[in-house]
């Protein structure tokens, strides 16, 4: 699964980058500092499944088509 680490990127740059990677690869493992609830909700509306977990240091969100 393609991995995308957006830590350190400004907030407004993240959703477009995530959408671009999803279009290229169909699924994605997103690495982020805090759980991106709004982004996850919007991806669900667009037919994606999101599963998030905290590994003690960072949030890992697995995104794939439903």
């Amino acid at each position: 699964m393609e991995r995308l680490d957006v830590r350190g990127l400004p907030h407004p740059e993240r959703p477009p980058l995530v959408m671009k990677k999803l279009q290229e690869h169909g699924e994605l493992e997103l690495i982020v500092e805090v759980e991106p609830k709004p982004l996850m909700a919007m991806l669900r509306e667009k037919g994606y499944v999101c599963e998030s977990r905290f590994d003690g240091e960072k949030w890992i969100v697995r995104i794939r088509r439903a």
């Binding site: 407004p12 959703p15 477009p16 959408m19 279009q23 919007m42």
Partner: peptide
């Protein structure tokens, strides 16, 4: 953010779209 997801997210890669 809502506007971008609503109007442009699905057009990304198909046509030129503005970033957030």
């Amino acid at each position: 953010m809502i506007t971008w997801m609503e109007k442009y997210a699905d057009k990304l890669g198909v046509e030129d779209v503005p970033m957030i």
